[in-house]
Structures are given as C-alpha cells and as structure tokens.
Simulated scan of single mutants.
Amino acid sequence: MRGLTKRFGAKVAVDDLSLVVPAGCLFGLVGPNGAGKTTTLSMATGLLRPDSGGVRVWGHDVWRDPVSAKALMGVLPDGMRLFDRLSGRELLAFVGSMRRVPSSVISERSGALLETLGLTADADTLVVDYSAGMTKKIGLACALIHNPQLLLLDEPLEAVDPVSSQGIRELLRQFVDSGGTVVISSHVMELVESLCDAVGVIAAGKVLAVGPTEEVKQGQSLQDRFVELVGGPQHVAGEAMAWLGRSFDSN
C-alpha cells in the first residue's frame, strides 16, 4: 500500500498511508475505533476506491488489474453480507463456482472447511439461521474455498466461541506455514500478540509503528505499547463521576 488517502467530506479517514506486508507473514493491523483500519482494508481489497495512492498484490495493481489481483485474495470484510438464504454447503458451492473452482474440488474442500470450522452439523442449515459466530466462520470458509495466496480478515474472531477461536488460530497458522500470507484487523491485542509475526499500529489514518511484533512491543505487552502509541484514555475528573458506585439506596 503506497500513499493511500481517503476522505469522507471533511474527514480524512486514511492519510497518505504506506504499508508493506511481507509474503509468508501473519500480519496484525491494530488501531483505536475510527483509526481507518476497515477503510484501509477496503481499499486494499478493491471494495473502496482510494482518493489517491495505490495497492499492489504480488505486482498486480488492485485497481488497474483487479481480476488478477483479486484472484490471489480471500477476503472477510467486517459485517459482510452473505447470500443467507442458501445453506452453508450451498453457499460454499456458490462462492467456489464464482471462483472457478472445479465442482469436485469444491465438494472436497467444503467438507474439510465445514469440519475444521465446526459447521458440519449445520452444513444444510440456512445461513440466515446461523448465529453471529457461525456466520463469521462460514464467511471465513468462503474466503478460503479457492485456496488464495493472501487472506485479509477484518475482526475474524469477533463473536466466535473460544473453542472455535482456537481452531481458527491453528488454521491460520497452518495457512501461513504452508506459504500463505494473512492480514488480520483486530481490536483484540492478545490475539494479535500471540498469533501475529508482525504488526502495524495506525491511528487517525496514519501508521504509528510497524515491524516484527517483538520489535513493536519494545519489551512491553502489546496492549501497553498500543496505549502508549495512540495515547491513553482521557480520565474523567473524580468529582464528575463521583456518583458512580454510590449506594443505590441513596437515590
């Protein structure tokens, strides 16, 4: 990503942002609410056109050569809308066919993905009846069905239970160990710290720090380093919140 900029009216959501994600890396993108993470990923995946700047995926320009660039990607946007009147199995078959995956391969991969993500028992249930966590998991399966080289995941473990979360962590690590590249946007510092090889911290649409996770942490927890970089919370004066914690009997 080179010089990415995106404005919404007077608000600059992403401000001349440049970021290089090494191949074969599990990369975490973190930042406070409104930092520009989702906008950045949307531009990187061709979902949102930047006002200026560009994105290349293995040499393919996302906006000048979108077919070649997007063929290499698997994408799980935050709040992705799915064809939820299909069952989980049908949705994977549909997405696989759109990705031009042979039907026999779709069947094999679908079975493996559904089992790995704990969805086999609900494979023939309509996606509209899935829980939030199940919807997130079937979205991840859709991103993987064509065996991409690059995964871009916005909050992939949001609403996912701890058992499934562990399974997804292991799946992503296996994907990277096999030569894939993953970019994760997350608010969960423990996830990024424990899983990611490298991390980028952004705020106000700018990169504040980027590099191997241990280097960015500088001997602190990622949570503490993150707060140090973006600025700690604004503490409310004691008198302003003095009512909090008083006995309800005094009302």
Rank of each mutant, 00 (worst) to 15 (best):
R2S: 08
G3A: 13
T5R: 05
F8H: 13
K11C: 09
K11W: 08
V12H: 05
V14F: 12
V14K: 11
D15E: 11
L19W: 15
L26T: 07
F27I: 10
G28A: 05
G34T: 03
A35M: 06
G36M: 11
K37Y: 10
T39I: 02
S42R: 12
A44S: 13
A44W: 04
A44M: 14
G46S: 04
G46F: 09
R49T: 14
S52G: 11
R56W: 07
V57A: 00
W58Y: 14
G59R: 01
H60A: 15
W63H: 05
W63Q: 05
P66S: 07
A69G: 10
A71P: 00
D78Q: 14
M80K: 06
R81A: 15
F83A: 10
D84T: 02
D84C: 02
D84A: 03
R85C: 04
G88F: 04
G88M: 05
L92E: 09
F94S: 06
F94A: 11
G96C: 07
G96E: 10
R99Q: 11
V101I: 03
S107N: 07
S107T: 10
S107V: 05
R109T: 09
S110A: 14
T116H: 15
L117Y: 06
A121D: 13
A121P: 01
D122H: 09
D124L: 11
D124V: 09
V127F: 00
Y130K: 06
K136G: 06
K137H: 06
I138E: 02
L140H: 04
L140A: 07
A141K: 00
L144M: 07
H146G: 03
N147Q: 10
Q149L: 10
L157G: 04
V160R: 03
P162T: 10
V163M: 09
S164L: 03
S165P: 02
Q166A: 14
G167W: 07
R169T: 04
E170G: 09
D177W: 05
D177M: 13
T181M: 00
V182M: 06
M189S: 04
E190F: 09
L191N: 04
L191E: 14
E193W: 07
L195Q: 12
C196S: 15
V199I: 13
G200S: 15
V201Y: 11
I202C: 02
A203G: 05
A204W: 03
V207P: 00
G211Y: 05
T213W: 13
K217E: 02
K217P: 00
Q220T: 13
L222N: 03
V227N: 10
L229V: 04
G231M: 09
G232N: 13
G232F: 09
H235L: 15
V236C: 01
V236M: 02
M241R: 09
A242N: 08
L244T: 08
G245E: 11
S247V: 12
S247G: 14
S247D: 15
N251K: 12
